[in-house]
Structures are given as C-alpha cells and as structure tokens.
Simulated scan of single mutants.
Amino acid sequence: MRLCGLVAILLVAVTGCTNAPDRAAVLQAALDKIVADQALESGARGVTASVITDQWTWSGAAGKDAVGTPLQPTTAMGVASITKTFVAAEVMLLVKAGKVDLDAPISTYVKNKLTANGATVRQHLSMTSGVPDYLGDDYARLDTVIKAAPTKHWTPEQALGYATAPVGPPGTFNYSNPSYVLLGLLIENVTGQPLATVLRRDLAAPAGLQHAAFQDAEKPQPPAAQDINPVCGPPDGYLPCRAIASLSAANAGLAADAPTIARWGAQLYFGHVLPPGLVAQMIAGDGRYGLGTMLFSRQFPPGLSYGHRGESSDHNSLLLVFPDRHLVVALLLAEGNKRVDDTMANFLTALQPLLT
C-alpha cells in the first residue's frame, strides 16, 4: 500500500502517490491553459507543477521547452532565487551549531569591500544590509564577458567585483543578490568546504532531494529544459550555462524539478530541516521579506503564504507554502520574463476547490 500526503512526501517520491482521476484532470487542464495562454504574460510555452497536501500529492507538466522538447513533471529548470532559501537555511544551521552569530557583522566571517558598513548576518539575510543589487550597467558588463566565455567558472569574488553601486547604511529593505553571494562566502569560510558540498551534505541529502543540482559544482540531471540564452551559446550541460550558473551560485544557481522544490518547501518550512524556532525567525515579519524567505501575506487565494520566487530571462518559478492549509505548491515556467505570480494565482484558482 502506498502512502500519500505530507507525511508520506518525506518518505517517498512526490510522483509516487495515486490521485483521483478527476483531481488530476482538473490540475492538468490548468497547466494546459497556461500553455494555451502562452502569448499572455501569465502564460508560458511550458510549465511543470507539484502540489503537496495532507491528503494527496500531484505533479504534472504541459508544453515544451525553448527547443521544442515536451516537458515531463521531473524536467529540471533553473529556479533562480529559490536558491536563497537553501543558503539561508544553511546559515541558520550554522547558527544552531554556534558557529555563526546572526547579529554579528558579516565582516566577522567575510572580508570584502561590501562588508565594511557593519551590516549583520541577519541584515544580509533579510535584504536590509545596505548592499544594493547589481546595477543595470553591471549586468550589461557581465553579459559582455559571459558572451565571450560562456563556459568559464566564476568565483564569488569575481562576481562581486562587478557590483559597483555604493554601499549605504544598513536598515532599509533593498533586494540584493550580492548579499547572498556574501552569505555563500560566509558558509564556505566557516565550514571550510565548497558551498555545493555543504548544501548537499546538510540539506539536500537529509531532505531526500535527489534532483537538486547546486551549479556549477553539480550539473542538472536529465531531463532538463533547454534554454536559448543569447549570451550563453550552445548548451554546455548547465542552466543556462556555466558562467551564469557559477557567478550566481549562492543567489540563483540551483536547478531542480517541481517535485523537488515542493518537497524542499515541506521539509524546510514544516520544521524537518531546522528546529521550529529557527523556521519562525525565517518567516517572521510583516513586510515582504523574512530571512531568505518572501512573505506573501494573503496575496494568493488559500490565505497566508511564504516561500520564494525565482526570476530569470530563461525560466520563472514560484514556491509557496500555506501553513494554515498544510499546502505546498511549486510552479516552474520554461520561459523567462513572465508574471509567475499571476500564473500561480490562476493555477490556485483551479486548485482551491480540490482542497478538502
């Protein structure tokens, strides 16, 4: 007899549970509509999704990737900033072990031009460090050098060298990818191990995330959605290519499939990876960001939710956890620059009547 539901998802693959045919049909139709609406900002050429509830689980796919290959529920895509939930969780594990002080300056652990303003580890996790995001001109310069060498491996220090915006005083919210590059360096400096090694050992392996790839130390496992990224050139086994995957390893380097992302949401936010007290700190706050966690308040139909969005020019993704409903939903779009929040809202409209 096969177990289903939230408890079972911690033991078996999300695709291993049997679902009522009408439920599967409704959710598949919702994915098919996303593909049918691909000309809209809320549509996409291809989509995968995974749902975990206390009573049942479901995963599905519709459409194709950028080169016309049909998607499967287990097709890996770049999930961009969902990576930040892993980095934040690892920092919290180091806090639990007494190796990191959340309220110590990050310069205690990382020496860099961007850590001289006294911002704490907690402030970097919460996007209130005063370290701005890369500027448009920074990204333009990065595109030029990536296009010249798309298979190059970048170090975190090399990536941070392209951050040119002046660092301000800590305390004001400002979404910052460089903050998470610095947090990745913190993890490496404190543990003495490469970031991917630590995330695999401490998080992915215990959580049973066999199809998560921490690029560029790891390559996505097939099947993987192909991209047509103008700066990357021919496919090189990474999403979208090794240069981009490595320079954004700590802030946006993860590649995974929808069942893996949903499973991670359940493992992390329902207290199977971290003690509940540390999870509570990650989801605390009445703004838009906790610690490595986006706070969505009641933006989506089932109610209060949190998780993270992943946005890139290649793929868009969204992980949502609804604690009051014990519901986790992961949605991955095989197309970038789409309004994934709107896509998710439409999918949840179809899902909500099935939640009993």
Rank of each mutant, 00 (worst) to 15 (best):
L304W: 14
A36T: 13
C4W: 01
P353L: 11
Q299Y: 04
S50A: 15
G68V: 05
G184M: 06
F270T: 08
I106E: 07
Y175E: 06
F214A: 04
D137P: 00
V340G: 08
D37H: 12
D138F: 10
Y238T: 04
N117A: 04
P223A: 07
P353I: 13
L327M: 08
D138W: 12
G265E: 09
T155R: 09
A97I: 02
A205V: 09
P70W: 11
S126W: 00
L332V: 03
D341C: 00
L331E: 12
A159Y: 04
E311L: 12
M127C: 06
D32F: 10
G168M: 00
A225R: 08
G5A: 10
G60Y: 06
T151Q: 14
G237L: 11
P178I: 06
N112D: 14
L11K: 03
G277Y: 03
G208Q: 06
D37E: 12
L333Q: 09
G310Q: 07
L331N: 07
A256P: 01
L355H: 12
A163L: 04
V79G: 13
L278T: 03
V26C: 10
D138T: 00
L160R: 05
P169Q: 13
E41R: 14
G184R: 00
F270Y: 14
R141N: 13
D202V: 02
A213V: 03
H308Q: 12
A148S: 11
D236E: 11
P169M: 00
V190Y: 07
A24K: 11
S59K: 01
L291W: 14
V190S: 02
T69C: 00
S107W: 07
A163I: 01
H124A: 05
D137Q: 07
P220H: 11
Y269R: 02
H326N: 13
P156Y: 09
I244F: 10
I187L: 07
A116C: 00
V79Y: 14
M344V: 08
